[in-house]
Simulated scan of single mutants.
Amino acid sequence: MSGKDASELPLGAQLLLEMREDIIGGRLLPGTALVESELVKAYNASRNTIREALHQLDREGLATYVRHKGVMVRRLGLAEVRDIFQVRRTLELQAILTSRPLREYQSDRMLDALEAAELAQSREDWRALGTHGLHFHQHIVGLLRSPLFDEFFATVAAQMRLLFSLAPDEEHFQRPWTARDRQIHDLLGAGQRQAAGEAMASYLDDSENRLLDLLSAARPL
């Protein structure tokens, strides 16, 4: 959500950003086959550039090579959920508890994501709501003012999107979070970092537990 303009990056890096954002946006779902010939047309890129991006998605845990099937968008499991939330707690709580008073541009970015999420909710577009929620949390990590963390957390956000797809009822899963995101923003805006950190910790605990429950219910007996 920050750092270099995408147009300044090499073609492979630009394509990686685009494909990662398509995962965050819910346009590439777990189990989707990533066929080179189709990707060449869809992204208007060379086969070599596509292969480079696919290798990087594999390294980031967003795609995987399946024997006799090729490359597919990855399905995540219980271990990945726990690991992702360990990372989220480390970065998001640190970002809040060490943050300076919100600057106007930081607040504006968060509010843009919140307002887009609220609009999506009013339209019952639950996939878009989830995407804007992920962008809000990317802006939270942006408080650390580290391009390296921003880049790393973009992968975490994409992994979270893969987990969202586990919910059989997107409305039931997504509806509670926007109001809680706004509460976190408002506490930060009021300079109440400790309270914002506590609200975020509770948010992450509840989100992790719901995803673990979803995964456990989906596992074969």
Rank of each mutant, 00 (worst) to 15 (best):
M1K: 10
K4T: 08
E8L: 11
L9K: 14
G12Q: 11
A13G: 01
L15I: 12
L16K: 12
L16M: 05
L16P: 07
E18G: 14
R20E: 10
R20L: 04
D22Y: 05
D22T: 09
I23N: 07
I24F: 00
I24M: 07
G25P: 11
G31P: 08
A33N: 14
L34R: 09
E36V: 15
E36P: 13
S37K: 08
E38N: 12
A42T: 13
A45H: 03
S46L: 06
E52W: 12
E52A: 13
E52V: 12
R59I: 06
E60L: 10
T64M: 05
T64Y: 00
T64S: 00
G77P: 15
I84F: 01
V87T: 11
R88N: 07
R89M: 03
L93T: 14
L93R: 15
Q94I: 08
L97T: 13
L97F: 02
L97R: 06
T98F: 01
Y105T: 07
Y105M: 10
Q106H: 03
S107Q: 08
M110T: 00
D112H: 06
A113S: 13
A113I: 01
E115Q: 10
E115V: 01
A120W: 05
R127W: 08
L129D: 07
H132K: 02
L134N: 11
G142R: 06
G142I: 07
P147S: 11
F152P: 03
F153T: 05
F153V: 09
F153L: 13
F153N: 07
A157D: 15
Q159P: 01
S165C: 14
L166Y: 01
H172L: 13
T178P: 08
A179T: 12
L188D: 08
L188C: 00
G191T: 10
G191M: 02
R193A: 15
R193N: 14
A195C: 00
A196E: 00
D206R: 02
E208T: 03
N209M: 02
D213Q: 11
L215F: 09
A218H: 02
